[in-house]
Design a protein around this nucleic acid. Sequence first.
DNA 1: TGTACATCAGTGAACGCGCGTTCACTGATGTAC
DNA 2: TGTACATCAGTGAACGCGCGTTCACTGATGTAC
Lengths: 199, 199
Amino acid sequence: MAGKVAARRAQVRIKLIDAAQAQIEAGGLGALKARDLAREAGCALGAIYNVFDDLQDLVLEVNGRTFKKLGAAVSASYDGSEPPRARLIQMSNAYLDFAAAHPNLWRALFDVQMPSDGPAPDWYLTSLAGLFANIRAPLSELYPEMDETALGLMTRAMFSAVHGIVLLGLENRISGVPSDHIRTMIAQVLLRIGEPQDG
Amino acid sequence: MAGKVAARRAQVRIKLIDAAQAQIEAGGLGALKARDLAREAGCALGAIYNVFDDLQDLVLEVNGRTFKKLGAAVSASYDGSEPPRARLIQMSNAYLDFAAAHPNLWRALFDVQMPSDGPAPDWYLTSLAGLFANIRAPLSELYPEMDETALGLMTRAMFSAVHGIVLLGLENRISGVPSDHIRTMIAQVLLRIGEPQDG
DNA sequence: TGTACATCAGTGAACGCGCGTTCACTGATGTAC
DNA sequence: TGTACATCAGTGAACGCGCGTTCACTGATGTAC
């Protein structure tokens, strides 16, 4: 029966991605070491290169997973019945919670060195577009008069603003603050934004 | 006459910081290499370690300079006569302009690995406090009813939000946008924030 | 089914490179008298 | 002022380490007949 080899290969692939994820989650991108990876995955050092071109490939796999989980967490944070402002805040808090729960996986999404040829791989753009779609919907309810361009910019602006608050809030360098304070900051910014039209 | 040695030492120190700044500005933190540094500064490799403990020290010197320049640019962007909302926007645009003009120096401010013992060096906290003071003033005009704590959080929130917009706006990874668009995004967020009280 | 051969994943020692830091040596600068 | 000595910055070759990737070899799996 054929397939024993292919199955084993697939298994090694999964084990390597699992191990890479564990390493990045535990110590950040810099903690991804080929030898540790092989040891944790229970295969030989050289076996990594039977399955992947290089470690960078592995990082992209892990980031793909992370983006999926992040997207799911954000999507699960609202049911669509909320007023748009409340929905934005719930999504932002879900974003914060995800980042706080998996800081290293989350940072890896933004720290990867993208290949210089193509500006970004497909899975990245697709995942990002999905995330942005979540934000755009409530914004278009809040600002029905906005055209597509303005709405697109507003969406980016919202995401970036929340991202910045979460980013600097989570690193103690900029003088770390507890999650509740980060939540307050998000609400401060988002509530003010909604006010003129909505309350 | 004594002092010839000390003078020379001081000169080497300056040359090394200049060279380090040039390297970081040109290629980011990762481009700071001891050998290149020595060549550019016109001294021997070992001389670096006569003046500094290690390269990290040099990075901190460069970041100190950068923070000073950044602070000056932000302070110079307003004269205090503007309405608070306009002032916030001018400061934010100055921040954007600085980041766009010196992206690698700017990123180095946030990318340094701080020593794990103390959370952050003094010059860092001082500079940050100065930057925050610039933001707090117009905010307290906009929201006179806020207490100190809320105002502090709002200040951080503002800074973080603008930082996030500039950060993601400037890296093409997240799908780069021209500076004008970044300006629009900043205005979108800040203007909305000011509206309920002010317009 | 059984045997002989081919393939290709598995292996880990070795390669190669980069690079921060050290160290034994030297020579200019400064000091004592 | 001049001479002998001491000091310490200047020097760059060498050290040491980490680590991604390769490569010649092996053995299990798959195929042909």
